[in-house]
Nucleic acid binder design. Structure first.
Lengths: 186, 186
DNA sequence: AAAGGCATGTAAGGTGTTACATGATTGT
DNA sequence: ACAATCATGTAACACCTTACATGCCTTT
């Protein structure tokens, strides 16, 4: 079902490297020190992932400090890596994404700047708002379910409110991003 | 740092079994069909986890259909399992929880009914609201950072709004849960 | 009697975590 | 000279996913 070629971590690495060439350590630090939080700042995840991306030809590391036993590699994106990143960023948002992968959607949004054009970004945000509406409509009936406990109902309400907030955000972001490109008067 | 004995999935299983004795299949179905979504509805995760919990003495399976080659086990919680579940549910919420583990916090809230008393639940919600305030205050400065891209800023705003909404929710839930126990007039 | 849903389980494979090991650079 | 930080990497281990295998039960 999921025809993803890489893990979320790998795409996050590609996205950050696209914004600016970085070393493995700098990538780790980015995860640790910014609110991008839990896409893992552990060396045991980042270095093997970088090695794989390099072997797959999606990134290339330029070695500084060459004569040393400890090389320091600064990675940059290859054309192939750019394409792979675009393939991940591009798809429209589905209700299933909303049910299971909201954090990944926000990561995609944060990393798509400069890789998707304005109409592709608009499509992302529009389909995201729609998918939220659809998913929320599908889970709201659970609020009335008779076997729902008080805590279950409250937790579900919290989830629904979170998603409604994200839909509002998506529509606001859409306006902000399309701003400066006013509609031509007929 | 994390002195957790079990995985989130294992605690989720314990919590559901506490609400009502269930079979492995019924547990999987619960994950698949309710908005508890992605705590995994895959048999390759659920059955081994149940086996481990059984061997550890946290749950016990009553076998129906005994003579058959395919037993059907209905699991119920042992005293030891109840204690382990309580240990997971009880701790106050920290800013680090907010940064990395919000979904798990919501799961804890949904499953603590009937195991924690009213003052323990109150503490959970109060510390959650406080921890959110604290964490949001710590990440808000990033909005003004000069190297922030437009998408980065928008994504961060979305995250901040989500957390603010959860803090509002926590305080509302606190009122709802403490309702019916009015303060005695002096 | 066949089909489809109920129900339990295993095997292979990939990924992430933790902990550790090591080297380089900078500040005191 | 020493400590702290920068920086890269590996090994052991647990876990989850996917795919598969198997058996029971109800409906048509």
């Amino acid at each position: 079902m999921s025809n993803r070629l890489l893990t979320t971590l790998a795409y996050a690495l590609l996205g950050l490297i696209h914004q600016a060439p970085l070393s493995g350590y700098a990538l780790m630090r980015t995860f640790q020190t910014t609110p991008m939080g839990p896409y893992s700042g552990s060396p045991g995840a980042v270095y093997p992932a970088l090695g794989k991306l390099d072997r797959a030809g999606l990134i290339r590391g330029k070695v500084e400090r060459q004569a040393s036993l400890r090389p320091r590699r600064v990675y940059h994106l290859t054309t192939k890596g750019r394409d792979a990143l675009r393939q991940w960023l591009l798809p429209a948002v589905t209700a299933d994404d909303i049910a299971c992968r909201v954090p990944e959607l926000m990561l995609r949004f944060a990393l798509m700047e400069g890789l998707l054009n304005r109409s592709e970004v608009s499509r992302f945000l529009k389909t995201m708002a729609q998918a939220i509406d659809e998913y929320v409509a599908s889970i709201e009936p659970f609020l009335q379910a008779p076997d729902m406990t008080q805590h279950g109902r409250l937790a579900l309400q919290s989830g629904i409110e979170e998603l409604r907030g994200r839909a509002v955000w998506a529509r606001r972001a859409l306006r902000e991003i399309t701003a400066g490109r006013p509609k031509r008067k007929p």
